[in-house]
């Protein structure tokens, strides 16, 4: 997922760069007929606007269906309470099984924290915020066995960076 995001971003930024390089490389020789230059540019801009809007509509529909935040991982997920505080995690259960639908009920006893689950390759697979007065429900179905880490991703004070807990995910029988 993250590699795809980086690749798409780089592609988009390269396109913008290409437009700037094109204009700059063609900037030295002057065309005094700015009316003609701008008329041509407006024609291109119309298509550029249509392209940007079309990409936006496709990307919006593609990334919002199904709605990512409420997409259920199963009808009856196992509920695990995850309580946070400066600077610790208290998980009701620190084990899980591959393919098992789990819903973490994330809360805090003091300040805002971030509940981010890292897979064995050290990439985030899901996250939510832990906010005073609220319980955020995070649906997760682990897809690979091994040691997963929960890191705090909302700055919460002096030992924020060491607020880590392990989740051991085992293969399904």
């Amino acid at each position: 997922m993250q590699t795809t995001v980086l690749s798409i971003s780089l592609l988009g930024m390269l396109l913008v760069t290409a437009a700037f390089v094109f204009a700059i490389r063609n900037s030295k020789q002057r065309n005094d007929d700015y009316g003609a230059v701008s008329a041509k540019a407006y024609g291109i801009r119309r298509w550029w606007m249509i392209t940007v809007c079309a990409v936006g509509i496709v990307a919006t529909v593609a990334t919002l269906t199904p709605f990512p935040l409420t997409a259920s991982t199963g009808d009856n997920p196992r509920i695990i309470k995850a309580v946070s505080g400066q600077w610790y995690w208290q998980l009701e259960d620190t084990t899980a099984t591959v393919g098992e639908p789990i819903q973490y009920h994330v809360s805090t006893v003091d300040v805002n924290h971030g509940f981010a689950i890292y897979n064995p390759n050290d990439r985030i697979i899901a996250q939510t915020q832990a906010m005073p007065g609220y319980i955020n429900k995070l649906n997760v179905t682990f897809t690979e066995p091994g040691k997963h880490l929960v890191r705090c991703l909302e700055y919460c004070g002096l030992a924020h960076h060491s607020m880590i807990v392990e989740i051991q995910v085992s293969e399904a029988n």
Partner: peptide, 10 residues
């Protein structure tokens, strides 16, 4: 994008 934000936020 929400889907991206789930793995990139913070």
């Amino acid at each position: 994008m929400i889907r991206v934000n789930m793995v990139m936020h913070n």
